[in-house]
Design a protein around this nucleic acid. Sequence first.
DNA 1: GAGTCCCGCCAAGAC
DNA 2: GTCTTGGCGGGACTC
Length: 382
Amino acid sequence: MESLGRQSYSRKEKSLGVLVSNFLRLYNRDDVDLIGLDDAAGVERRRIYDVVNILESIGLVARRGKNQYSWRGFGQVPPVLSLLKEEGMREKFGIIPCVTNSEMVLYDQVREEPLKLSPDDQENSPSPKLDSKKEKSLWVLAQNFVKLFLCSDDDLITLDGATKALLNVSQDPMNMRTKVRRLYDIANVFSSMNLIEKTHIPETKKPAYRWLGAKAIAEARFLTAPASLCDRIEPKKRAFGTEITNFTTKRAKTDCSIDRKHYESQNTCSVIKQEQCDSKSAVKRSLPPADTSKKTNAGKSNNQSIDVLENLSSAHTLQYCNHVNWSSRPLHRDMEDMACRVWSEMTSPGRYYNYPMGAKNADVFSLQQRKHLLADQQSLIL
DNA sequence: GAGTCCCGCCAAGAC
DNA sequence: GTCTTGGCGGGACTC
């Protein structure tokens, strides 16, 4: 029996990636609320802890108590990514946004303890040993890994690079090795969710990962009865608009070209280029006033916005510049940024520091300009 | 041989 | 004391 088992055994069958796929197949449904780890543990239980920790880091599940997690769904991922990006930018560039109570509530919903302890908090912490453990946790490491993608202009990130970025250079090689192992775990989970994809650095052929983000979320939500799921798990968004009665995901997907044309006719503030257009001609993005009454409507279609963004992003490439610098990035990255910002603004009006990509200092933007840009972004999503 | 990552030990915390 | 959780690193497996 043992030799037979050994013959048919394959490591890949027990990989974290396969486990996550099974996990999502089992729970990515609109009728799932509670997840019992005992039920989920079709494989070795230790691995379940790895999976839920990583999924929890992006808000897909939330711990309710011993052996119990709640399924939050892919609808909760964009706002969590928004918060992670915000925190990552703050750490990277020293931008200090004002975090509202509602956002802290969101943090608390995602995790019962805060994302990361500030130095002051650490000083006052009752248990330095516990803090040290938290800092090393897969959950924190996964969040920091995501931040690297969200806050980097590089399209590809190697695990080596990520390890160095997430660790002090002074740390010993053994520690590095351990951390790389964990990053492999995290990368495998995110890969199996299509949140990232594995590829290679063209020049060096070294393995690297590319962030897919909104695309994976849109697909995951679209494939799993998004309307009812979103209604249940995103009550906050409802507060900013009335009931959606004339907007479906299907319509959003098929009508995106119409939406785009409508947008282009209504707004001169951003221009979307079609692929067949001359890709070398950059389009300058300016900031005229837009119809701010659309802000309320943006709240209505928030649930569908990701799908719309995905369609737009897969169909178009955007080149633009702002008054700070010129840049060129895949459109889906811009769309993702916009979705995150709009979501933030809708949940906490006025608090988000909207500024063009590439601007490293929020001060270059006046409040009025930010309002215009926000209206611009919301119009584009609509 | 380097890269990848499964496996399970065992410490810490929860109950 | 038992159970749950999860950091950690050995070493098997893959390329």
